[in-house]
Design a protein around this nucleic acid. Sequence first.
DNA 1: TCCGGTAGGGAAAGCGCATTCCCACTGCAT
DNA 2: ATGCAGTGGGAATGCGCTTTCCCTACCGGA
Lengths: 347, 347
Amino acid sequence: MPASTLAEVARLAGVSPATASRVLNGSARVPGENIAERVRSAAESLGYVANAQAQALAKSTTGLIGLIVHDIADPYFSAIAQGVQAAARQERRMVLLATTDGTPAGEKEAVIAFAARRAESIIIAGSRSTRPEDADANSRLAAELDRYCRNGGRVGVVGHPIPGASETEGYRIVTVPNEQLARDLASELVRTHEGPFVIAAGPQGLTTSDERVKGFQRGLAEAGRPAADVVRAAFNRDGGFDAGLAIAKQIKGSGTGVRPCVFACNDVMAIGVAAALREQGLKVPQDAGVAGFDDIEWLRDFRPALSTVTLPLAEIGRLAALAATDDDGGPAAVTGNVTLRRSTAVS
Amino acid sequence: MPASTLAEVARLAGVSPATASRVLNGSARVPGENIAERVRSAAESLGYVANAQAQALAKSTTGLIGLIVHDIADPYFSAIAQGVQAAARQERRMVLLATTDGTPAGEKEAVIAFAARRAESIIIAGSRSTRPEDADANSRLAAELDRYCRNGGRVGVVGHPIPGASETEGYRIVTVPNEQLARDLASELVRTHEGPFVIAAGPQGLTTSDERVKGFQRGLAEAGRPAADVVRAAFNRDGGFDAGLAIAKQIKGSGTGVRPCVFACNDVMAIGVAAALREQGLKVPQDAGVAGFDDIEWLRDFRPALSTVTLPLAEIGRLAALAATDDDGGPAAVTGNVTLRRSTAVS
DNA sequence: TCCGGTAGGGAAAGCGCATTCCCACTGCAT
DNA sequence: ATGCAGTGGGAATGCGCTTTCCCTACCGGA
């Protein structure tokens, strides 16, 4: 038993479908008030709800915006999703959600699905991979995005351009100065921390991680400090934990007196690092400092409070959505700022 | 410049649209391989992507599933969203996302939007409000849901039935035994904690909060303990913080030696409570125990580790999505279990 | 009184696809 | 040679809506 149609409403109201359409679904031409009232009450009594598919087909505009994230349960992504959702609501659009676990192949699938749904814009969040084994999938993703753009779609990318994607019209990117901010973080940390630095990074080839590592190392170099050791692991909480275990072993093996400061490339990794250190009997910040990146809101009550780089995540999502929606506006840029808390305090 | 159409593909391949449709978009009748190949290569060279709107209109099935949450950035909801998303992916559907801040009016709007989009099922997560001032909006929401169901839609509700919604066919609910679990938590806590209990609850009339309060009080009563004071605040982290401040004041005012145990009605409130207590110079668990509810994954590294009730959030989302998708299967039920950690330990 | 102009309503043509029905043709048994 | 089932392709219809175009009726001005 399908929903009632415009034609039924029109018949009940004794008008033509054209008229019914005009009064119910907005049009330049507004019928007379008496007629309009008849139509409205007919619609009401039938419980008419316009079929958005049919409208989309007729108007060739869907009001859909697609959001692609690695994992919606990750607070980094859910914060961005919140921003996208807010922008969508403001623009009276609906958001379609796809999760991909970060694989370019999955992202390609999502782009195709969104293209089929004729989403008017697509937001892609999450670090890109520049690893050789992903090159193939990346270029396929890029090809799909290009096709989507050629057909009039708009793409908003958070962070980094898709490797291999041409800079077509309608391809907006919200840049985050990861490298610069990581450098700033290092610059701040060297002011109080005198020992060695260690970086808990994601896999090599993850752009976000790579940029943050690079920036942090640059900050150290500028301060005349030796480069930090880089411990690689998964770019999530468990990866951080693994890295933390390795680092704990290093600390314990290196005799007393050395108190390293660990820079984890994102907050959830930092949490993992801290958990591992604690599990190994090491105290933060007494035995080792820990800093993160992102300043995830839900992690602010952690103790010791995490030194990190605050990023306006929701705003990033909002900007990406707006950039991919509005016609004006070139590339949007956001920035963050270093937030020192107790996890890197020296007694 | 719109995407190419099936007709264009058919023309290029030198076949009829019917045939092209049959080879490209699956059908009982599969054309001969030579023809199929012609069509496929034509589609490939044109970059054809089927228009899902048109397909939906023709087949009257959309493959859409709508998800309604209070706030996608809240880890409780994003965990559920993850489950819904996983189920959707498994069933080859796409999820439409709507956030409502928990207002019945907003939920009604979302239901209408999903109905317009002809989503095949709608998942509603988040506590209901039974407050008198929401009665009106609730019944409107219920009416909208009923209409949606009457038109063949399926609804999956997490937790509580919508107040006033009739139990129509296609109206599935994933129940969570909040009251029972809160009782169990109390039963466990009384075994070690001898002092008074305090409950940091959400506003009166929030079903989830109300149930948990009720269950906890019942657990206390069954153990022969006096009922706990109930401090009400917003049902989120900041509400927990506010409640925590009030409780800290009580503790300080009541002389030394009384060490209460605070039951916050959800984990993020518990985090807020703990933060407030700490800010007021009180130590958890030495000066006060704190327990939560939900066992949010991202909070597991919190210290002191939070005693709570573990709920399979992602599974709940998955079940709700499946219940609202499959034809079989009656009401699904999940349960959780009490997880005692250090935040309620007595020295 | 007549005429040009202008609301205001309806008919009809799509939008892009799935699907039913029809038709031509093939291969086989009679 | 004839009939028949079976196969494979196409024409046409409809999904529910928007929008252009047309037509009628009514308005004011001369």
